[in-house]
Amino acid sequence: MLRIENLSVHYGGIHALQGASFEVPEGKIVTLIGANGAGKSTSLKAIVGLVKPSSGSITLNGESLVNLATKDIVRRGVVLAPEGRRIFPNLTTEENLELGAFARSDKAGVQADKHKMFQLFPRLEERRKQKAGTMSGGEQQMLAVARALMSRPKLLMMDEPSLGLAPLIVKMIFDIVRTIAAEGTTILLVEQNAKAALEIADYGYVLETGRITMSGPGKELLANDGVRKAYLGEGL
């Protein structure tokens, strides 16, 4: 579905991605793990057009995304729930959800999906008229995921959805990722919580200072000694 080849991104003099290649097959959960500053967020931003690659290719079902504007990439079903949630704090929960569905014109469908989100995240329904910025971190993360889903993504990319959340909420978010995937949405998940991510992923990639250094099915990477040492915090 999504294929990244030899992707390079520079920020001024910083070479953040140095020829990374990976792919996300349709209907699968793929995870990208790596240390701070490895270039995970940069990869997702490049895919969705928020940063321009200096070289390499990004194709969605064969079509290049490189020169498209973000809005057009999102309209093709590639949606990012960004790092740090980036909900609109001065808007209500409901307005945030409506913004998620901004590209859609089927009012009835949007309304139905809003109710679906409220079923998925009952907390959000209680807070539908509340300014999103006044909600707790966990609620804001639920909103960020729900907002991304409102666009009916074909490929949902999530950048550290579990960051800073209590274990119970983390579990809930991961359960929902699994549910979404089971319903046919392809997932590209970036996580610090490598263990949880690899457990639900069909396939994983390890990113180190801008390059892919390892890859394999989630279970295999979980069992890999190098990965265990570097990313699962197990005995050195």
Binding site: P82, F88, L91, R147
Partner: peptide, 21 residues
């Protein structure tokens, strides 16, 4: 909806882009 887009853009340009605005 246009007004909603305006309010979104004025809060966070990149997040607004991610909403396909």
């Amino acid at each position: 909806k246009t007004g909603l887009a305006m309010r979104a853009v004025s809060t966070d340009l990149d997040a607004a882009r991610l909403m396909a605005i």
